[in-house]
Write a protein that binds this DNA or RNA. Structure first.
Lengths: 336, 336
DNA sequence: TCAAATAAACGAAACGTTTCGTTTTCTTTA
DNA sequence: TAAAGAAAACGAAACGTTTCGTTTATTTGA
C-alpha cells in the first residue's frame, strides 16, 4: 500500500543506497536529489520508522516517567519538553507511575522494551534502582526536580535551586519583622524537602534566629497533608506570625484550613506559598509565592537530552535554576 | 548484544516459528513452553518492537492529540487513558498542539508517520480536516469532549452530556428562586459551549423564564476571558442574582473578579462553577460546581479504542456521560 | 588528453520478527 | 496395533530500511 524506498528507487532509477543516503542527509548530485524529491512527493512516501529502527536500533523516541500526570507542576514542564523534542522529530512517550515505586520500575522497563533513545524521569524511588536497567544499557538519563546520588553521576539533572528559593522566601518574612516563622515541608527523606528546609534554616541563622523545632511541620506534599500540618502548627506553635508552605498542593490545603478557621491573611498570619500562579491570583488576598521557572526547566531538559543524542555532550551535567518571589498581598510587617 | 528470538531458538532447540508462536500467545506443548520461558529468563530476552512492527505493521502505540497539556481537565482524562492502555502493552504518544489548528494537523501527520495504531483526539479544528489523513488510512479515531460531524461518523466519541449538565445547574439556581441568572459560556462556535447554552435555555424555559440576551456572556474559556465577561455581566446585566460559569478557567477568572470587586458569595451573587474539585474546596465559600466524570471518560475512551483493536467493535459509537452537581456553599435562596 | 584522485552511486547482506504452507509428532479409534 | 485425524513444530520468505565494501562517474592536474 504505502510507498517504500524501493518505489522511490524504481521511480528515479537510482539505487536503494542512494535513496537512503538522501533520507539521512547525505550529499548527492543535484539532479538526483531533485528527482528523489519529486518521486517522494509524487508517491507520498514516508519513512517507515520501524524498518529504520530495526536497522539502526534507534527509535527517535524519548520516554518520560513522571509521578503524576494530573499535576500542573509536572505537565507544564513536560509540555515544554514535548514541544522541543517533537520539533526535532522525536516522539515522547509518557508514563505516569502514580508515585508508586513498583509502577516506576515497570515504566522504565516498558520504555526500554520500546527501545527509547533516552529517559527523562522525575524520580519517585529515591535510590534510583528503577533506572539500573537503563544505566546498564547505557542510554542517556535525565533527572527532573531531584538528583539521584545513588546513580553515581551517570545521569544529567535539571532542578530548582531549592535551598536558595526557600532562603529567599524566609528572608522576605524575616525582613518584615517576623521571627516565629512556621514552615511546611514535605517528607523528611525527599530531596526537595530537605533542601527547602536547609534554605529556611540558613535564612534564620543569617538573621540570628534559632530555628525552633516546633515551627517545622513535615507534610507529605498533598492537600490533605498540608491541611493537617498547618492545623498542627496553628495549635502547637505558639506565637507563629508567618508561615511558608513549600509546594502547591500543601498551599491549597493551607488555604482551605485557614479559611475554615477564619484565620485572616495577612492580619493574623503572613503566608508565602509555592508554585502556582493562578492560585496566587484567585486566592484572597492574592498570594505571595515562590515561583519556579517551569518553562526554563523544560527547555533545559529537552536541550540536554538532544545534546546527548547528537553527541555534542557526553558527560552528564546538573543544571540548577533559580526561583523567583512573586509578590502578592499575603504578607505584612509584623506589628511590634 | 541483546538476545533475539534466534538465541531462544538455539537455546531451546526449537524453531523460530515456535518461539514466535509462544510470544504471540499460541498454543504449544507444555514442556516446550517451559523451556522457552526458561530460556527467556536466562537470556533476558525482550521482544524487539521494531522488528515486530516492521512485519506486522502494528506499533502497539496510540497517539493522543490534545489542545493543552497543562490543563487538569485534559490530563486527568489522559492519565486514565494512559494507565489502561499501558496495562495492555500499548504506549501512548502525546502531542500537545497548544490549541493551534496548524500544529494539530502536524501532530496527526507526525503520529501517522510513527505508524500509531489509533488516534485519540480532543479536537481543536472544528471541521476535522486534520484527521482526514488518518481516516484515509482507516485507523481508528476516538474523539474526546466534542464530536466532529464533518467526519461523517467514522470516529467514535466520548463526551459529556453537556446539555443536561448545564440544565441541571441552571435548574438548581431556579429552584432557589433565582430568575435573573447569568451564564458565561465559551466561544459561540464551540460545541461544548453551544450545548451548555442550550441546556441553560432549556431549564429557563422549563420554569417559564424567557432567556434574556444580556445575561449571556461569551467568553473564550480562558481565565482572562472569564474575568472580563463576568465584569461585563456585573455592569450590564441588571438584577442578576446568580451566575453559572461553564468551565474551570473562567471559573477561576470569575472568582478573581468577584474578589477584586468585593462581591460577596452567595449573599450578593449565587455562583455555580465548573470542573475542578480542588478549587471548589479552596475557594471561600466552597464552590458549588458541575463536576465531570473524568475517570469514566478516560476509561471509556481507552476501552473503546482497545475494542477497536481487538476487533470486538467495528462500528464507531458515541458515549455521552453525565455530570454531577457538587454542592458547596456558593448558592443560596434568593431573598424575595 | 590521460592518469590519478575524488566523489557519487551501487549491490547485497543484515536487522529481528511474523506468517504461510508443509512436515513431523502425537492421539484416537477401529 | 495400524491408519487416520488432529495438533504442534518447522523452514523459508518477507517486511523496509541502513551500511559496508566496491564499482562507476566525475573532476583535477600535469
Amino acid at each position: 500500500m504505502a510507498a517504500t524506498i524501493k518505489d522511490i528507487a524504481r521511480e528515479t532509477g537510482l539505487s536503494l543506497a542512494t535513496i537512503s543516503k538522501y533520507l539521512n542527509g547525505g550529499v548527492l548530485r543535484e539532479k538526483n536529489r531533485a528527482a528523489i524529491e519529486r518521486a517522494i512527493e509524487k508517491l507520498d512516501y514516508h519513512v517507515n520508522e520501524y524498518a529504520r529502527g530495526l536497522k539502526s536500533n534507534r527509535s527517535r523516541t524519548v520516554g518520560v516517567v513522571i509521578p503524576e500526570l494530573s499535576n500542573l507542576f509536572v505537565t507544564q514542564i513536560i509540555s515544554v519538553v514535548e514541544g522541543v523534542l517533537q520539533e526535532q522529530g522525536y516522539s515522547v512517550v509518557i508514563c505516569d507511575c502514580r508515585t508508586d515505586e513498583e509502577r516506576e520500575c515497570r515504566a522504565v522497563r516498558f520504555l526500554l522494551d520500546k527501545r527509547v533513545d533516552g529517559i527523562i524521569n522525575m524520580p519517585v524511588c529515591a535510590d534510583g534502582r528503577h533506572l539500573r536497567p537503563a544505566v546498564e544499557r547505557g542510554i542517556p538519563i535525565l533527572l527532573l526536580d531531584r538528583p539521584l546520588d545513588a546513580l553515581g553521576g551517570v545521569a544529567s539533572c535539571v532542578l530548582l535551586n531549592n535551598e536558595n528559593a526557600a532562603r529567599m522566601a524566609t528572608r522576605r518574612l524575616l525582613e518584615l519583622g517576623h521571627r516565629r516563622i512556621g514552615i511546611l515541608v514535605g517528607p523528611k527523606d525527599i530531596y526537595t524537602s530537605r533542601m527547602r528546609l536547609k534554605g529556611y534554616r540558613a535564612a534564620l541563622e543569617e538573621y540570628g534566629v534559632t530555628p525552633a523545632e516546633e515551627l517545622i511541620a513535615y507534610g507529605d506534599y498533598t492537600l490533605e497533608g498540608g491541611h493537617r500540618q498547618i492545623c498542627r502548627l496553628l495549635e502547637e506553635a505558639e506565637g507563629m506570625t508567618a508561615a511558608f508552605v513549600t509546594n502547591y498542593e500543601m498551599t491549597l490545603g493551607t488555604l482551605i484550613a485557614l479559611n475554615e478557621r477564619g484565620v485572616r491573611i495577612p492580619q493574623e498570619l503572613s503566608l508565602i506559598g509555592f508554585d502556582n500562579m493562578d492560585l496566587s491570583r484567585v486566592a484572597r488576598p492574592p498570594l505571595t509565592i515562590v515561583s519556579q521557572p517551569l518553562e526554563e526547566i523544560g527547555l533545559q531538559a529537552a536541550r540536554l537530552m538532544l545534546e546527548r543524542f547528537s553527541g555534542e555532550r557526553t558527560a552528564p551535567v546538573t543544571v540548577a535554576l533559580s526561583a523567583s518571589l512573586q509578590e502578592g498581598k499575603s504578607t505584612r510587617r509584623r506589628r511590634t
